[in-house]
Amino acid sequence: MNIVEMNNVSKSFGRVQALDQVTLRVKKGEIFGFIGPNGAGKSTAIRVLLGIIRASSGTASIFEKDVWKEAVAVHHQTAYVPGDVHLWPNLSGGEVIDFMLRLNGGGNKQKKEELIERFQLDPKKKCRTYSKGNRQKVALVAAFASDASLFILDEPTSGLDPLMERTFQECVFEAKREGKTILLSSHILSEVEKLCDRLAIIRNGSIIETGSLQELRHLTRVEMRIGLHGEAPDFHALSAVAHAEKVDDLWLVQVEADQVNQVVDALHGRDVYLLESAPPTLEDLFMRYYEKEEQP
């Protein structure tokens, strides 16, 4: 079952085309990553989903309800954390959390207190005095203490220190374990790599790839390090090899991920003493798409 559905959604601000025919599905119970460089359109897509702005064309629904017309019904089960959290300077963090939770129908008091503890937030301080990271903590506590079944998180960790980032990741996994659905936008690829089941890559307002990390990896290259005695096969002659060079005694070979067997076959019968292959990181993958687009 799809919790979030966007079908050919476009959005333009005057002449700026922020979203171009975006189609997206987030399934129930998964952590869906939404990655792309700054200005790619992640926040715009999320703001459409939240009914803050209206799509110029296309349809979007959450829980099979129209995100614009039935926004209130959608928000009853949705929690949102923006990248840059703005709070009321005169209220304390604790007051804001309670206020937000009450708008959502109460939330869980015990869970709230536990989260405040885990994120090491001082709820008595006025929001005026909070740093960016602390304001983000306020929004995260309010989100994870609510009874929402969908979490929409737009670069939620940009102000957190590494320790708190880990706490955040634990919270996301806990939510998933409870069967909740998470849409996480980020430009920190290692974070997405750690958390997400499936992801979509967006560039200049268009989705350029969607799939599980596994699936996407097949679309890229593996880096192999090969050490062997005697004569080496002609790696350059293999169609799967994009690049090969000898550094000191080792060969570094970049191979299309779904055709590693070509290299293995070529090595057959030779005196191989070292064979390592590193899976492509999301960053390699991302850069690959980026380069592809840059090429004329």
């Binding site: 309670d98 206020f99 006025k126």
Partner: peptide, 21 residues
């Protein structure tokens, strides 16, 4: 001066917030 760790019982609607502010 410390703020309150929890919101008062009245702060539960947009109107209450506007009035409070």
């Amino acid at each position: 001066r410390e703020g309150k760790a929890e919101a008062g019982p009245l702060l539960r609607s947009p109107f209450a917030l506007a009035l409070r502010l």
